[in-house]
């Protein structure tokens, strides 16, 4: 793998403050190409802030962020092209059909005509929603909307997919379906994933994990390594040990 030297995502020494409140304090982490990395933290840990910096909604004032080697501040166009995003808030246009939502996204990436239609059909098939293409987004269930958003994020064939707590507010069945689907998709497409969550059951031992607590990175690496390093038996107890007994993550 010659491309392995370039990280899909590289975050180096990033800090961010809202006024005087420090949301991120010197955070560094990497996601290798084709890897599934979980960003684990409680509410308020700084996960969404980090994602806002990665997606260039806010400017990175200290530290640097690069997607596939493209600095988000210096070459935002190239970095954003390689990036697919699923925000925590719903971002489908409810008045438009599923298909029109995806075609709009294609246009935002300069893709039109046959290429746009073909890719739309392909990504919808990838999330098993090909038959809902003409339905209004409003008529989908929460889980289906999320799957459309995932399909949309993959439409321009990015090599890094970031998802901000994509399973929040979904029932157990939809949640499991989405986790499994994203894992299959990224394995088949070779896309790297940064998946923020506070739910331990979405993380597998072979994933990478970065644990964020009150804006600071407490640990990062292969899940099994992080568990071994803390001398604990499971990721749950490792998380508790690292965050000083914050046990309200769902085991």
């Amino acid at each position: 793998m010659t491309a392995a030297a370039i990280q899909a995502l590289s975050v180096a020494g990033v800090s961010h403050a809202y006024g005087t409140r420090k949301a991120l304090d010197d955070v560094s982490l990497t996601v290798g190409q084709g890897r599934f990395a979980a960003l684990l933290g409680l509410n308020g840990a700084g996960k969404t802030t980090l994602l806002s910096l990665i997606t260039r909604l806010f400017d990175t004032k200290s530290g640097s962020i690069a997607v596939l080697g493209h600095r988000i501040d210096r070459a935002p166009g190239q970095a954003l092209r390689q990036l697919g995003v699923v925000f925590q808030a719903r971002t489908l246009d409810l008045d438009l059909s599923v298909r029109d939502n995806l075609l709009f996204h294609a246009a935002l990436h300069g893709i039109a005509g046959r290429a746009a239609r073909d890719r739309t059909a392909a990504v919808l098939a990838g999330v098993d929603l090909a038959d809902r293409a003409r339905d209004k987004a409003r008529n989908l269930s929460g889980g289906q909307m999320r799957r459309v958003e995932i399909a949309r994020a993959l439409l321009h064939q990015p090599r890094l997919l970031v998802l901000d707590e994509p399973t929040v507010g979904l029932d157990v069945a939809s949640k499991l379906a989405i986790v499994a689907q994203v894992r299959t998709l990224v394995r088949d497409l070779g896309v790297a994933v940064l998946w923020t969550t506070h739910l331990l059951d979405e993380i597998e031992p072979s994933d990478d994990v970065a644990i964020l607590h009150r804006g600071r990175l407490m640990a990062a690496g292969l899940v099994s390594d992080v568990v071994a390093r803390t001398g604990t038996a499971s990721l749950g107890s490792a998380f508790a040990a690292l965050t000083g007994g914050a046990r309200d993550v769902a085991a």
């Binding site: 166009g77 246009d93 294609a106 246009a107 935002l108 039109a112 090599r159 497409l189």
Partner: peptide, 26 residues
């Protein structure tokens, strides 16, 4: 391993027009 080549930097004029048309259409 993703075998895709990196897309060229920047966009063509046609792509700018596609984007403009998409935003207007929506």
């Amino acid at each position: 391993g993703p075998a895709r080549a990196e897309p060229p930097a920047g966009f063509t004029l046609a792509q700018y027009l596609i984007c403009l048309r998409g935003i207007t259409w929506r």
